[in-house]
Amino acid sequence: MNTKAATRPTTPETPVTKRPRGFAAMDAATQRRIASEGGRASHLSGRGHRFTSEEARAAGRKGGQASRGRDNTQGNAAE
């Protein structure tokens, strides 16, 4: 006896639409509340980090520098 759940056969004419599950299925306010609790817990445990404006500026510069030398091909940046 097969114990797998019954699945619908898929054809090109009837694509299967996935329904959101878990966190994605919650309304935005509930997601925000849960994420906020996690952030608070992180800071209370001493693992959280709040960027200063200077740190944020430096991180933005690093990201910009990392993306500048790349071309549109996948592989190493052209030198």
Rank of each mutant, 00 (worst) to 15 (best):
M1A: 14
N2T: 01
T3Y: 11
K4Y: 09
A5Q: 14
A5L: 12
T7R: 09
T7G: 08
R8W: 11
R8F: 13
T11F: 08
T11G: 05
P12M: 06
P12W: 03
E13C: 03
K18H: 15
K18F: 15
R19W: 10
G22M: 02
G22V: 10
G22D: 02
F23P: 01
A24N: 09
A25S: 07
A25Y: 06
M26H: 05
D27V: 05
A28R: 07
T30K: 12
T30W: 05
T30N: 12
Q31W: 05
R33D: 10
R33K: 12
R33I: 03
I34Y: 06
A35N: 02
E37G: 03
G38Q: 00
S42L: 09
S42G: 11
S42F: 05
S42A: 15
L44S: 07
L44W: 04
S45N: 13
G46L: 01
G46R: 04
R47S: 14
G48F: 06
H49V: 13
H49Q: 15
R50G: 03
F51Q: 10
F51R: 09
T52N: 02
S53H: 10
S53E: 15
S53F: 13
E55I: 04
E55G: 13
A56F: 11
R57I: 03
A58S: 08
A58H: 04
A58K: 06
A59D: 07
A59Y: 10
G60T: 01
G60L: 10
R61P: 02
K62P: 04
G64V: 02
G64A: 12
Q65D: 13
A66F: 07
A66H: 11
G69L: 06
G69Y: 04
G69E: 03
R70T: 14
D71M: 00
D71A: 07
N72T: 03
N72Q: 03
T73V: 01
T73Y: 04
T73N: 06
Q74W: 02
Q74H: 07
G75F: 00
A77M: 12
A77R: 15
A78K: 14
E79R: 08
E79A: 15
